[in-house]
Amino acid sequence: MIKFTIDGIEVEAEEGQNVLQVALDNGFDIPHLCYHEALEPYGACRLCQVEITRGNRTRLTTSCNYPVQEGIKVQTKTEKVIRARKLVIELLLARSPNVPVIKELAEEYSVGTPRFSLDNDDCILCGLCERVCREVVGVEAISFLGRGSSRKVGPPLEINPQTCIACGACAYVCPTNCIKVEENENERTIVRWGRTLPMKKCKVCGRSFAPWFQLDYFGKITEGIPKDFWDKCPDCR
């Protein structure tokens, strides 16, 4: 067990854990947008910054990708931490002034109208969609494109992604809800990526429940599950 303190309180963690996860598990409130416990930490949104003292050196750093170490001192509410959070929120708010989760953060941290011209982008480039697609689903249908201020997430060449199984995991993890999923009796569409796939009907109840392509893929990557498992909707299995 590794022991260290967060805001003066001693906590315990296992080797390989990161500071943010341990802090959240112990009830500390650290805002974060690009972190998800099922995914590799990425350190892009810069909201989870804290001050960490190791030896005689204290510095501001992101907690999501900071590996726990014996004896470190983590501070989550110093003047510097709050200043950094407020500035990050101001930058995000100027980019995405109409995204509820950003507006809530701005309110919580008393960040008023940004001092810059306002854009209206609903994506904050946290990369959760890209990571879930690559790390969990394993199809890598989308990735980051471009760099600097023209960076965005999308399918290769920004055309209908051939490997996307329209599972919707990207939409599920998106903190700003900018990836919309539309469904009707016959098709499911991931609007942002321009992917539409036909749906399969449940062998038992006849309800459309998931894209054919997705069920085929799941059938291929899972072992020991009877083939007709994927012919039935979750309610009839």
Partner: peptide, 22 residues
Amino acid sequence: LKDESCGKCTTCREGTRRMYEV
């Protein structure tokens, strides 16, 4: 720098762009 930032960190991507604007 705003063009050459990889764009990963909010602070660098948005920050250099806003500094350029100012």
